[in-house]
């Protein structure tokens, strides 16, 4: 196993790993609750995945197979950079195949390929506190969670409806975990919210700059906030993926020319490539 000279396996020292591991165990035992942890300065900037990286570094072992995605893609520069960091400091195998991975670190998406029991999905979280825009003071929001005073969030969503005729939150859409804590699922599109509900995989969330970890255990109820007369709904596209013809995936818009012509393709590059390899062909496929 090739590991970077002068650094411990997975970069973090063992005492730091133990501290994060204990925080993760409490996070699993209290689903959706934000556990404070002694986040360390990492060799990547805050805001670029330091929370996810610390969680992954505390989890990863020599037998793991790691997948890293950003915006659903394995080959965006930040995903490439984080993957190469872990290769350098752990020597573990990496993959782009969702099914092969034991650990998946992600920013802003949940893979389209359904996750299996035993897999762990690690989210990079910029702002963990769902009430932050409604109440900036941490001391206050902590009390609000303790009392489950979540009325302000419903009021905010209702004001959206009054102004726009619908809930205008499109990503990082708030959820209630296990009928108790209000949680931010990180800036995944609300399209991915239904995948949080009773997912067989363990989902761990790391916010490095904000120094919090939290978890959704497997098969845990995760409900997106809504109203009887305005039920939660996900994004829909009028056309399938231009490359693989999928109609069930989240699509990115790509502008093709100066005239504003555009196409829609899967944001999950592995899912799209897999479908194309299996013979599915979109309108603009090679």
């Amino acid at each position: 196993m090739s590991v970077q000279d002068g650094y411990n396996f997975a970069y973090l020292d063992e005492q730091t790993k133990r501290m994060i591991r204990r925080a993760l165990l409490k996070a699993v035992a209290i689903p959706g609750y934000q556990v404070p942890f002694g986040s360390r300065e990492m060799p990547l900037p805050y805001g670029w995945g330091t929370g996810g990286i610390q969680v992954t570094a505390s989890l990863i072992g020599a037998d793991d197979v790691l997948k890293v995605i950003d915006q659903g893609a394995d080959d965006t520069t930040n995903a490439v950079n984080i993957r190469s960091f872990f290769r350098k400091v752990t020597g573990v195998a990496t993959t782009e195949q969702t099914r092969e991975a034991t650990l998946i670190q992600t920013r802003h998406r949940i893979p389209e390929t359904p996750l299996a029991a035993g897999q762990i999905l690690v989210f990079q979280v910029p702002i963990p506190e769902p009430l932050r825009w409604l109440e900036p003071r941490e001391a206050e929001t902590r009390t609000m969670h303790a009392l489950r005073e979540y009325g302000v969030m419903h009021v905010k969503l209702y004001e959206d409806i009054a102004r726009h005729g619908r809930i205008a939150t499109t990503y990082d859409y708030p959820v209630i975990v296990n009928d108790h804590y209000l949680m931010r699922p990180s800036p995944i599109p609300k399209f991915d919210n239904p995948k949080l509900h009773r997912n067989p995989a363990l989902m761990l969330f790391g916010a490095g700059r904000e120094k919090r970890v939290y978890a959704v255990p497997p098969y845990t109820d995760v409900r997106s906030l809504d109203f009887d007369d305005h039920p939660f709904a996900i994004e829909r596209w009028e056309q399938p993926c231009a490359l693989c013809a999928a109609t069930d995936s989240y699509l990115d818009e790509i502008i093709l020319d100066d005239a504003g012509n555009r196409m829609f393709v899967c944001s999950d590059t592995e899912y799209c490539a897999g479908r194309q390899a299996a013979g599915h062909k979109g309108a603009l496929a090679a």
Binding site: H108, D172, E235, S267
Partner: peptide, 13 residues
Amino acid sequence: LPHYVDFQSNLDL
């Protein structure tokens, strides 16, 4: 960093 997934959902709305 790319934010095109979140941007897309806002664009759609």
